[in-house]
């Protein structure tokens, strides 16, 4: 499992709707903003890349020092972004695919307003379990 991994879901209007530090490293307060900065900046690249390919998984698209950003763009242009320091493309791909399924279930919930924050604790537990499994 990766020592550092920050997973974030960004809605189509660039608002983070779910955030989780899923790395095995002890969570540090002072890097939270750095992770956000890297992921936030990486969106500039996603914006360009997303239209050049039909694949949803965009692989590692950006890097900052030894941290890599992998992105998965859903059909509705919700971006699942993972900041990680391990090189495990297959695992990340499966992780994204399963989280995508979870996300679809969230969207199907009639009480969930698309684009709003995901507060479901069930979703959170599942995502963390997936992270342990694949990353």
């Amino acid at each position: 499992m990766a020592t550092t991994a920050c997973f974030i879901i960004v809605s189509r209007n660039d608002i983070p709707i779910y955030e989780a530090e899923v790395g095995s490293a002890v969570k540090r307060e002072d890097v939270a903003h750095l992770h956000q900065f890297i992921l936030h900046a990486a969106q500039d690249i996603v914006q360009d890349l997303a239209w050049t390919t039909s694949a949803m998984f965009l692989k590692a698209i950006d890097r900052f020092n030894d941290l890599v950003v992998s992105v998965y763009v859903t059909a509705g242009h919700t971006r699942l972004m993972l900041l990680h320091d391990s090189r495990n493309d297959d695992g990340i791909k499966s992780f994204f695919q399963e989280v995508h399924e979870l996300y679809i279930k969230i969207i199907l919930n009639p009480l969930y307003l698309p684009g709003s924050r995901i507060t479901s604790s069930h979703f959170d537990t599942k995502v963390r379990a997936l992270a342990r499994k694949y990353l």
Partner: peptide, 10 residues
């Protein structure tokens, strides 16, 4: 096109 977020980050 301008990459504003990268601009901000750097």
């Amino acid at each position: 096109p301008p990459m504003l977020r990268k601009f901000g980050f750097h």
